[in-house]
């Protein structure tokens, strides 16, 4: 049960990390105003992540790690799945 919760926690933190990283792009048009806040948040999340890695032991660390990795792979993969989906639709249309 604790491993499941850590798996989910790992996912949640990587989600927050990704979203924070994207903020540089999303707020690029006003980056002068927003970069300090984004950077502070990013550093906080990285420190939190690092702390978890430092203090946790296997198998709990594995659960946390796999939660992060699996969502990261999912996030990248889903983008390409959607692109391929559009390509298939366009090919069928043509």
């Amino acid at each position: 049960m604790l491993e499941l919760l850590l798996f989910l926690a790992g996912m949640q933190i990587i989600i927050m990390l990704l979203a924070t990283g994207y903020r540089y792009i999303d707020l690029w048009y006003r980056i002068g105003e927003y970069w300090p806040g984004i950077t502070a948040r990013l550093i906080t999340l990285i420190v939190l992540d690092a702390a978890v890695f430092y203090f946790l032991d296997s198998p709990y660390l594995n659960a946390f790690f796999w939660g992060q990795i699996s969502y990261l792979i999912f996030h990248v993969a889903i983008f390409w799945v959607v692109r391929i989906g559009f390509w298939l639709l366009e090919t069928a249309r043509r």
């Binding site: 989600i15 927050m16 979203a19 924070t20 707020l27 048009y29 006003r30």
Partner: peptide, 21 residues
């Protein structure tokens, strides 16, 4: 939730003009 989680967080507390681009 899984599909939209990152995008949900990206669009939380954005300034009014973030879609102006």
């Amino acid at each position: 939730y899984l599909l939209m989680a990152v995008f949900n967080r990206r669009t939380a507390a954005m300034p009014d003009d973030f879609m102006a681009s």
